[in-house]
Simulated assay, not measured.
Amino acid sequence: MKATFDLSRAEWVKSSYSSGDEGQCLEFAPDIAATAGVVPVRDSKNPAGPALVFPVEAWTSFTSAVRNGEFPAI
């Protein structure tokens, strides 16, 4: 099933894990998560581009794993 979300009024927040001016910036929209139960994520270098949308539970699991160092550094 494919759902569509209106992200035109989303308030995007840059991830605290984004690497400054090195071009590896990720943004997410917590206001959508609070109302729709999903977390939209996009590349801050391409704000008009596509956004990935994750269920809140999946996003929470992913961010917890990042905080706990469960992913190897590249």
Rank of each mutant, 00 (worst) to 15 (best):
M1I: 11
M1G: 14
K2S: 11
T4C: 05
T4M: 07
F5Q: 06
F5L: 12
F5M: 05
D6R: 00
L7R: 01
S8N: 15
A10P: 09
E11G: 13
V13D: 01
V13Q: 13
V13T: 12
K14A: 12
K14E: 14
K14R: 14
S15G: 04
S16I: 04
S16R: 14
Y17G: 03
Y17R: 15
Y17E: 13
S18H: 12
S18C: 04
S18Y: 06
S18G: 11
S18P: 12
S19M: 13
G20A: 13
G20L: 05
G20Y: 02
D21S: 15
D21P: 00
E22N: 07
E22R: 02
E22T: 12
G23T: 08
G23A: 12
G23W: 06
G23V: 11
G23C: 11
Q24D: 14
Q24Y: 13
C25R: 05
E27I: 00
E27S: 04
E27P: 04
F28E: 00
P30Q: 10
P30N: 10
D31C: 05
D31Y: 02
D31Q: 07
I32V: 15
I32P: 01
T35V: 02
T35E: 00
A36D: 10
A36W: 01
V39Q: 02
P40G: 03
P40M: 03
V41L: 08
R42C: 10
S44E: 15
S44A: 15
K45V: 05
K45A: 13
K45C: 08
N46G: 04
N46D: 15
P47K: 04
P47Q: 06
P47Y: 04
G49F: 12
G49C: 10
G49V: 07
P50Q: 15
L52T: 12
L52W: 11
L52V: 10
L52A: 14
L52Q: 14
V53G: 06
V53N: 06
V53Y: 00
V53R: 02
F54K: 08
F54P: 08
P55Y: 01
V56D: 08
E57R: 07
W59L: 04
T60M: 09
S61N: 08
T63D: 09
T63Q: 08
S64A: 15
A65F: 08
A65Q: 12
R67S: 13
R67E: 12
R67H: 14
N68I: 02
N68R: 15
E70L: 15
F71L: 02
P72K: 09
P72C: 02
A73Y: 11
I74N: 03
